[in-house]
């Protein structure tokens, strides 16, 4: 009896999908968040001249109607809502997903899911360090319990960029300051890799102050981190994230509604510098030159 119902339900779904005559996406986003609004609006603008119709939804539950071919979620919470929604099997493209979150979620669903990672590729970040501090710069990296899982990936990137990296694992918040002190003492640069145990709102004061006192520049992973006192760093603006997302959406339809990858890294990115901190650390960073080099490298990837 159950088997008959399942067959009926599957047939219904197939029929329903076949009725979609045009290309349509639904963007699910949190309208209370400024960056979500910017990303959504930019995707809508970018797709205005295309055949792709864009619907938006800012409720936590995914709607069934109107019909659409791709669900684009903005932010981790909306990605999880979509992954947990058993009533909807539409392919999902999730934006603004940290790499560690993508890693954790990838094994916990069986949907057609691709993520647009918010982190900049490690190779690009190490390349930034190489261009700013020279290839002999020793890079210290603090990893927490979550980020330890990507250690191999960073080692791989370091090997490709020919940069020396030294890791220190921080198991809990109590170990942070001693580990940080040792890392900045032994290295020329501190590369911040997101991890809730290491880099959070409570720890930022200690990390930035101690590094500064030790004259060790910090490479931040967000615009806010650079504004707060990191010397420089790479990040993607909401507009750049929207541009990348637009390309992936177009590619999805071009590819017969299939993703060509399940993880996309930012193609468009910005480099920023905290000029006062750089001046104070006696660093001359030729931001335009570095940006050009990194963009050239990004295009060849």
């Amino acid at each position: 009896m159950n088997f008959v119902i399942l067959i009926f339900f599957c047939s219904l779904l197939t029929t329903f999908q076949a009725q979609a005559r045009e290309q349509a996406i639904m963007i699910s986003f949190d309208q209370d968040k400024k960056y979500s609004n910017i990303i959504t609006q930019n995707i809508i603008n970018n797709l205005a001249d295309s055949d792709i119709r864009v619907f938006t939804n800012n409720k936590t539950k995914d709607p069934i109607e109107p019909e659409y071919n791709l669900l684009v979620t903005v932010g981790s919470q909306y990605a999880i809502n979509a992954l947990n929604n058993t009533e909807n099997s539409t392919p999902i493209l999730s934006l603004l997903i940290p790499e560690l979150t993508a890693l954790q979620l990838e094994n916990k669903h069986n949907k057609v899911w691709a993520t647009q990672i918010i982190d900049q590729p490690y190779k690009r970040q190490l390349s930034l360090i190489k261009h700013v501090f020279g290839k002999k710069a020793k890079v210290g990296i603090l990893l927490g319990p979550s980020s330890s899982k990507i250690k191999k990936k960073i080692i791989q990137a370091a090997s490709e960029t020919n940069i020396k990296v030294n890791f220190k694992i921080v198991d809990n918040a109590d170990q942070l300051i001693p580990s940080l002190k040792e890392t900045i003492r032994l290295n020329d640069v501190l590369l911040a890799i997101p991890d809730p145990v290491v880099y959070n709102k409570n720890s930022i004061r200690g990390i930035l102050l101690l590094s500064y006192r030790n004259k060790t520049p910090v490479i931040g992973f967000s615009k806010s981190y650079i504004k707060a006192g990191a010397t420089t760093g790479l990040y993607s603006t909401p507009e750049q994230i929207a541009n990348d997302a637009t390309n992936h959406i177009k590619q999805f339809f071009k590819n017969n509604k299939n993703f060509d990858k399940n993880r996309y890294y930012p193609k468009n990115f910005s480099i920023d510098i905290n000029q006062r901190v750089a001046d104070s650390l006696r660093l001359n960073i030729e931001i335009k030159n570095v940006n050009q080099k990194l963009n050239r490298e990004a295009k060849s990837e």
Partner: peptide, 22 residues
Amino acid sequence: EPDANNLPGSESDFLDELPVVL
């Protein structure tokens, strides 16, 4: 089932404002 409370990070780590330390 994925749980938002147990995630190792979210976009807010990248996009939220931080206090200006330096």
